[in-house]
């Protein structure tokens, strides 16, 4: 009996040594260490992103009182609503126009900053990043005061030139313009800093070669700068498109979706329906409707990036 016990403990101890060795080897592997170091972040993402996302999908399949499974019933209901299609249209207008102008302004400003002598460039970079580093809820409050229907600082200034008053947030067209403008103001610095980084990585020899070939300013941009920046432009646009589509704070603070729902976007309308209207499943369905739109955009943009990567 004692011998058997001894043998068993020897076997167990040999197995333990093997396990320890293999664990030791695994820990020595770079990939294992990398995984362990990213594990806290993975857990955080699982907890704060993946779980809520799946929970939102679950909610979107329930009826208003959350007591019955309705499958795609909420989406079928939404597709019949006039306001929903207005929100889809506005979200697209908001996101596409804001991203386009953010990219354009970011590109132009990045060139200006790139051409500023190195000594003063850091100051300019810092100043131009200010809109992006202020929490948007705070900066939008300042914009709200500038656009205030009765006491707008802009209107006060314009009145000196005999212009206005402009209904910044009271007229559908102007209200859309205002929310897009604030989004551009907030997001353009991100594009600027990304493009600036890309510009700095374009080899100087390419410009020299282009200059020798007699390329003018526009040709240098078109044939050298833009092709070298294409991937970063695509990735930045995709990131920004996702964030802009899901924007909430700017519209919520400036117009709350008004006038007459003409500035509602997915997130603000989901909040109105889900939280203010106590119809959480429908609110979840509205916000989930962004997913297929963004997925299609992501597939096209990333496919293009991969294709160019393979060509290179």
């Amino acid at each position: 009996m004692a011998d058997v016990a001894f043998e068993q403990s020897r076997i167990a101890s040999a197995g333990g040594v093997r396990r320890r060795t293999s664990l030791h080897n695994a820990l020595k592997r770079k990939s294992t260490m990398a995984f362990l170091m990213t594990l806290p972040l993975i857990l955080l993402i699982l907890l704060l992103v993946v779980y809520p996302a799946f929970y939102a999908v679950h909610l979107a399949t329930l009826n208003k009182s959350m007591a019955r499974f309705v499958g795609f019933g909420n989406f079928e209901f939404l597709f019949k609503r006039e306001t929903f299609w207005l929100v889809v249209k506005q979200s697209c207008i908001f996101a596409i126009s804001a991203v386009f102008f953010k990219a354009l302004i970011g590109f132009i400003v990045a060139h200006f900053v790139h051409n500023v002598p190195a000594k003063g460039q850091r100051k300019w970079r810092g100043m131009l990043l200010v809109p992006w580093v202020i929490p948007p809820a705070m900066s939008t409050l300042a914009w709200l005061w500038l656009f205030d229907p009765s006491y707008s600082a802009f209107n006060y200034t314009l009145s000196a030139f005999g212009i206005g008053p402009i209904p910044w947030t009271g007229d559908a067209g102007w209200a859309r313009f205002s929310v897009i403008l604030v989004n551009i103001w907030y997001g353009a610095p991100f594009f600027m800093i990304m493009y600036l980084a890309a510009l700095k990585s374009v080899p100087e020899q390419l410009y020299e070669a282009a200059a020798i070939d007699g390329a003018n300013w526009w040709q240098r941009i078109w044939y050298v700068t833009l092709p070298m920046m294409r991937n970063i432009i695509a990735i930045t646009a995709l990131f920004s498109l996702i964030v802009t589509f899901a924007n909430f704070d700017i519209v919520r603070i400036l117009t709350s979706g008004g006038p007459l729902d003409h500035t509602h976007i997915f997130a603000t309308w989901a909040f109105r329906v889900g939280i203010e209207g106590s119809d959480i499943p429908l609110g979840a369905s509205v916000s989930l409707f962004m997913v297929p739109i963004l997925a299609v955009a992501a597939i096209f943009i990333l496919r293009d990036v991969t294709k160019r990567g393979n060509e290179a």
């Binding site: 229907p149 209904p167 947030t169 008004g258 006038p259």
Partner: peptide, 11 residues
């Protein structure tokens, strides 16, 4: 006032 369509609870 002409801007009442944009009023909120503070206006």
């Amino acid at each position: 006032p002409p801007d009442v369509s944009a009023w909120d609870d503070a206006s």
